[in-house]
Structure formats: C-alpha cells, structure tokens
Simulated scan of single mutants.
Amino acid sequence: MVRAHKVVLAYSGGVDTSVCIPYLINEWGVKEIITLAADLGQGEELGPIKEKALRCGAVESLVVDGVEAFVTEYAFPAIQANALYENRYPLSTALARPLIAKMLVEAAVKYGADAVAHGCTAKGNDQVRFDLAIMALNPNLKVLAPAREWGMSREETIAYGEKFGIESPVKKSSPYSIDRNLLGRSIEAGPLEDPMHEPPEEIYLMTKAIADTPEQPEYITIGFTKGLPTHLDGKNLDPVTLITRLNEVAGNHGVGRIDMIENRVVGIKSREIYETPALLVLIAAHRDLESLTLTADVTRYKRGIEQTYSELIYQGLWYNPLKQALDAFILNTQERVTGSVRVKFHKGNATIVGRESENSIYAPSLATYGAEDQFDHRAAEGFIYIWGLPTRVWAEKTRG
C-alpha cells in the first residue's frame, strides 16, 4: 500500500535515516524523497551528509541554516522562562525539535509533498516531539516513522542498507548515541545505561575535566535586556556569538555537565549525560536578575509556570495553546528584567557574585542595619499581630 508519493525526510546522515530512504521507496512505495538536514550550529560539515542522501536515493537533498532562529526563537524564550526539565536539564536537544519540524512542514509545502518522515524509534522522546509539532503546524500532512515500525535490529538495519549500497562502518567507533547543536550535547547508551557507571572523560567535548581547568578564576558580566542576554562584559554581541563565547568560557572552567536519570515522555527512565555550558549559566544569571527586579508574588507564581513550561517543551508541546498562553505571561514579566549579572568561573563552578539593574526594587535604605536604616521598626509588632491572628485564634480554640 502506498502511504505517500512525495516525502520530506528529516535527515542526519546516520544509519537509521539513511536506511529510511530505500525502505520508504521499496517497502512503502514512496516515489520521491527529499531529505532535509538542519544546521543548528552542531559544528559538523553538512556537505558530505547532503551528498550521502543523494547516493542513498533521495531526489533532492536540502541543508537549511537555522542557527540564528534556533537561538532567538527557541533558546531565548526558554531562558526567559528559566526552563529546566526536572529542575536540571535546560532542554538543549528538546528545543531543536519544534524548529526542525517547522522546517519539514515548510519544505513539504514548498515542494508539494504529501508527507514528512523521521527516523525516530518507538522508545524515544523525539518521535513525540516531531509528530506533535508537525500535527500542530499542518494537520493535513502525513507523518511517516519507518524506524518505529520496521522491527529490525541494529544489525538487520545495517544489513538492509548494505543491500542498497549504503555503507556501514567497519567497526563501531563509539557505543554512544550523541546529539549536538549550538546549545549543547546529549550523550546516552552504551555503558552509560548502567546508572552506576561513571561517565568516562572521553565522552565530553564542550567541557574540561576539573583537573584540566585553569587555576585562576575568570569573571564575566552578562547583560540582559528585557530578559534576553545581549552583552558580555559590556560588549553588545549577536545571539549566536554570545552563546558561542559563553560556551567556550564556561566549558574551559568545567562548567555545564549534567548526569541525571530523567523520565521520558513514553514512561521509561533514562540515564542522560548533557553538556550545556552557556545555557545553564544564562538561566542561572537570568533567574538571579529576576530576584532583583520582580516582586515576590510574581517570582513565586512564575516558578510554577516555569515547571509547566519546561514539561511542555520536553513533552513535544511547543506549539500547544497552553504553551502560547504561558509565553504571554512570561513575556509580560520580562519588561523590567534588564541589568547585569557578574559570574565567577572556577573549577567547575559558575558562581553569581554580583548583580545590578536600573529597575532594581532592592532598597538599601530598607535592607541596611546601619545608621541609614529607614525601615519603620514600630510597624513590625502590629504586622506580626495581624499576620499571626489566624494562628492565634486556631490555637485558642484547639487548646481548650
């Protein structure tokens, strides 16, 4: 049965997405396949990937530059939301998926495709993220997921590809599954599947081991404008350069490693290793600046919003109506989040050591214990009486 005639396939150049090409043609009757590789700042030469897709049978191979959009339209809103899934993971990989889905849908419309496809398996989060994002952007498009259905083992997948001239590695150089973009790297599988196995130093690329980091600390001042990072040490930088520079500084001091057991969307617990130097530092600095510029009630309420926001991103609901509504709330809170945060980098730590803002609602004359103190101490007794009145009444009624 023909499931689609023309398909746009999300393409990475790996075994699964390469095998998807002949599989879709020979098993599912697809007539034309257009591959799309997204450049999200992964630092990889995409020319050979483009050529490989054509050798595998694609009629056209696209490489789309999405680096700037990735930072400004996806990473920056997540920073404003202080988005940390399970209070640890800054969603570096998850944030890429709605953008890639958008690219797939746009390419499908441009080339007249009746379906899009991806190489995700049935156990991962990405299948959910791609399927839901594509559904939200264009519910009329079919979504094909051959790797979720073909039922082949890794060895069988490689053997199937070899029948159609798809070269396979002579030996597996690494047992790990790695995903990278400008925001960071995710590493899983292989020996890391044992939660007690210490990650070997060889898996890290963006962050130095503590033993190899500089002996002297380094300070950087991060400037924010309405919740968006715009400056480093007083110098205005474009978003991509700012992230790149901060990745280098933080990584050089061993900052940005995460080793966690996380709860996948499909119900499986998974051991994940992440390197996200700049993103972790920016979220910490942004949250600190909010403590200086937002009222206590807004800050407390926003913390609950941030948890929901992070879960929506992780669960593939970037284009969900609730996510859009939360965007409006978060954007409103950022109007006064402008200022600077000073960060000290040393031996795996990024410590915030200072902050300032023209919108600060920190009042030294109220906070000080010195002679400049303007707090009305006489008001405290009456405040405590009113504040504690429900407790007093409850105690009187229950102690008899």
Results as ranks from 00 to 15, higher is better:
V8I: 14
G13S: 05
G13W: 00
S18L: 11
P22I: 10
L40A: 08
Q42E: 03
Q42C: 07
P48T: 04
G57F: 05
V64K: 11
D65F: 00
E73Q: 15
A78D: 05
A83R: 06
E86P: 02
P90K: 00
P98I: 08
I100N: 07
M103T: 00
A117W: 01
A122C: 11
L144Q: 02
I166E: 03
S168D: 15
S174M: 08
N181P: 08
L183Y: 02
S186K: 08
E188K: 15
A189D: 12
E193I: 08
M196D: 15
H197Q: 10
T207V: 11
E215I: 07
Y219P: 13
I220E: 09
I222R: 02
I222S: 03
T225E: 14
R245H: 08
G251N: 02
R257V: 14
S270R: 13
T295C: 11
Y301L: 15
K302W: 06
R303S: 09
Q307G: 13
Y309P: 13
G316S: 05
L317P: 00
Y319Q: 10
K323G: 03
K323F: 10
I330H: 10
V337C: 06
V341G: 06
E358N: 15
S365V: 14
E372P: 04
A380G: 12
G382P: 12
Y385F: 13
G388S: 12
R392A: 13
K397I: 12
